[in-house]
């Protein structure tokens, strides 16, 4: 698993992952429930303070947002056309805060601890016959698959580019899906071989 953990000696690093996930879920829900730009601005300041508390630089907070710039651009243009620039700014600001907060969780929590935390949180479900190991495996696999998918689509697009098919949605979608399913079969064999 891709681990973005940055070791520091801070109270945020020491906090149990379950609490951090819960806090993230609550803050995100509040930000979406109360559509107000002042709240999002406040959350941005609060988030930057939390980065200082975790002894991480503001540059690291910025790094969480940077890969999403082109999505921000698209959102802003779409909101500009269909709504207004202020709503666009608000949506981007809220999005940035969420990315920074989710990034803070990743930076201060080892992935293995994160999965253990989710599993611990799901334990009560065992009483109802759920296989909770399966759920946490599925969650961590999903997060790992997202960059894999992007990479596969990129490779297929480059391959189809040489055939002049880069604008044909089928020529991109079908090989990408077939290839990722084949990759997922290899992964499940590997997991079984390790005796999951």
């Amino acid at each position: 698993m891709l681990d973005l953990y940055v070791a520091r000696d801070s109270p945020l690093h020491a906090l149990a992952p379950g609490w951090k996930i819960l806090a993230l879920a609550i803050v995100c829900s509040v930000l979406f429930a109360i559509d107000h730009i002042a709240l999002s601005l406040g959350a941005l300041c609060g988030t930057l303070v939390l980065y200082r508390v975790a002894r991480l630089s503001v540059a690291m907070a910025w790094q969480q947002v940077r890969p999403a710039w082109w999505i921000f651009g698209l959102i802003f243009v779409a909101q500009l056309v269909f709504n207004s620039w202020l709503i666009g700014l608000f949506v981007i600001l809220r999005f940035a805060v969420l990315l920074m907060l989710a990034g803070l969780l990743t930076l201060t929590t080892k992935s293995s601890d994160m999965i253990d935390g989710i599993e611990a949180g799901l334990t009560p479900l065992r009483r109802f016959g759920f296989r909770t190991e399966g759920i946490s495996l599925a969650i961590s696999l999903t997060l790992r698959f997202i960059p894999v998918l992007t990479q596969v689509v990129q490779e297929v697009r480059e391959a189809q580019n040489t055939r002049g098919l880069e604008r044909n949605p089928f020529a991109i979608a079908i090989p990408s899906i077939v290839r990722t399913i084949k990759i997922s079969e290899e992964i499940s064999d590997a997991i079984d071989a390790r005796g999951f």
């Binding site: 999505i71 698209l74 959102i75 779409a78 399966g134 495996l137 599925a138 969650i139 696999l141 999903t142 997060l143 698959f145 997202i146 894999v148 998918l149 992007t150 689509v153 899906i177 990722t180 399913i181 997922s184 079969e185 992964i187 499940s188 997991i191 079984d192 999951f196």
Partner: peptide
């Protein structure tokens, strides 16, 4: 089985990837 879990995760990730389409 494991294959089912991996496929479920794959299609959940596919949903996320499709969300990036404007």
């Amino acid at each position: 089985n494991t294959k089912d879990i991996v496929l479920i995760a794959l299609f959940a990730a596919l949903m996320a990837a499709l969300g990036v389409v404007p």
